[in-house]
Design a protein around this nucleic acid. Structure first.
Lengths: 123, 123, 123, 123
DNA sequence: GTGGTCTAGACCACC
DNA sequence: GTGGTCTAGACCACG
C-alpha cells in the first residue's frame, strides 16, 4: 500500500507521512475512512512501531487524522486540504536536489533524463 | 566561486564536494591546478576549516584530489572521470526526491513547474 | 577487546579500524552482530567519540559496517571479504617499513630479529 | 643513488636521512668523502631543496656530517657509529607496523610472505 | 539510547 | 604557509 525505502537518507517517518498523504491525494483513502492501525502498518512496512507512531502523531497534530473515542483514528474531512502543506515541502525537496545537482555540474540534459526515468518507472 | 546554503538539510561538506566537482565539470578548475586552500576556502564560505577539510579528505579518498604534503591539494589528472561518480549520486538524489514526491501525491504538473522554477533562477 | 597505542605515530582512527577488522578476522565479531556503540567504545578506549566515529564512518564507507539509523552499526554480511582490502593495506605498510629500513642500511639479520621480537611478545 | 617514494606517508626528509645513512652503511660513502650538494641532490630527487636541507641539518646535528669551512659538508669519521641511532628507529618502525598488522588480523604466514616479497625485490 | 554534523581551538608535521 | 589529527562540547535526527 505504502512504499518506503529503508536505505534512503529521507527519514522513515517522513516517508510514511508522505505515503499516507499520497493515499488521500489519490483517493485510495477518503475522509471518514479508518486509518490503518499503527501496529499492522509497522509490521507490513517492517519498521519500528515508534516510527509509525511518530508519523501518526505529527499528522494528527496537523488535523489530518481525527480520533473518535474508543474507535481509533479516522481520516479527517479536512484531510485533502491539509495534504497540501506536505506537498509544498516535497516540492521544496525537489528544488533543493536540483540546485545541488546544478552546482555539482549536472547538465539539464542529464536532469531531464533522470526525471523521465522516474516517470517511466511508474506504469 | 562555490555556493552553499547553510539552511539546507544537505550537509555542508556534501555541498562543498558538489561545488568543487562542479568547478571541474565546468572546467574552471583543470587537472594539475591547485585547489583553493582549506583555510582560505573555509574563510570565504564562513565555515569551519574542519568542515572543508572533511570535504577535501573525501575527495582525495576518491582520487579526485591529490594532496601534496605542505603544498596543498591539486586536481588529479583523473578528476574528470572521477567526477562522473559524483554526478551519478546527484542524479540519484534527484530521483529519490521525485519518487518521494510522487508517493506523497504530487502531480507531474506540479513537479514540472518546480523544475522550471529552478531552471528560471539560473539567469 | 581492542588495543591502541596513543604514543604511536599511526593515527588512532586507523588503529581502531585495524582493531575492528581484526575482531572480524578472528571471528569474535560475525556478520549481523552489532558493533560496540561509538560512545561506549570511545569510553573504554579513553578516546574522543569523534575519533571513533571517524573510524566507523570510514568502515561504513567501505561497506564493512552497515549503520542503521538510531540503532547502531552492524557487521555487514560482506565484511569478511571487505576485510581483505584492509589487510592488504596493512601488508603494504609492512613492506614500506621494510624497504625504508633496507634503504637505511638495516641488515636482514637485524630485520629478522625485529620480527622474532614481535612474534615473541604474543605469547 | 638514493631512492625515495613521494607517495609514502614517511616524511621525505626521513627517507633522505635513511638513504644517506644507508650509503655509509653500505660503504658507498666513506668518512672523509664529500657529501652530495644540497642543490644537486634536491634536483635529482625532484624534491624541494628545503626538504634536503632539513635532512642535512639534522644529520649535521648528530655529528654525521662535518663541515669544513669554505669547502662544504663531508662525511664525518664517526658517521658509521652515528648511523646506528638511525637504524634503531627504523627497527622500531618495523615493529610497529607488525603489531598494527597483527591487531588487524594479518596472519604470520601473510607477514612472512610480505617479508619474502621485499627480500625478493632486491636483487 | 543511537549515530551524524558542525564549531572551536590546540598541536603537529611538512615544505 | 600548507594539510592532518585530536579533543571538547553543542545540537539534531532517528528509533
Amino acid at each position: 500500500m505504502i512504499e518506503i525505502d529503508t536505505r534512503s537518507p529521507v527519514p522513515l517517518y517522513d516517508q510514511i507521512k508522505a505515503g499516507l498523504r499520497g493515499l488521500v491525494a489519490k483517493e485510495l483513502l477518503r475522509p471518514g475512512d479508518p486509518a490503518p492501525s499503527i501496529r499492522t502498518l509497522a509490521e507490513t512496512l517492517k519498521v519500528n512501531p515508534n516510527t509509525v507512531a511518530r508519523a501518526f502523531r505529527e499528522l494528527s497534530g496537523e488535523g489530518f487524522f481525527e480520533s473518535r473515542r474508543g474507535e481509533g483514528n479516522f481520516i479527517s474531512p479536512a484531510a485533502k486540504k491539509k495534504a497540501r502543506t506536505g506537498l509544498d515541502s516535497l516540492g521544496r525537496g525537489i528544488e533543493e536536489s536540483l540546485r545541488l545537482a546544478r552546482r555539482g555540474g549536472l547538465s539539464w540534459r542529464e536532469i531531464d533524463s533522470a526525471v523521465r526515468k522516474v516517470r517511466g518507472e511508474e506504469k
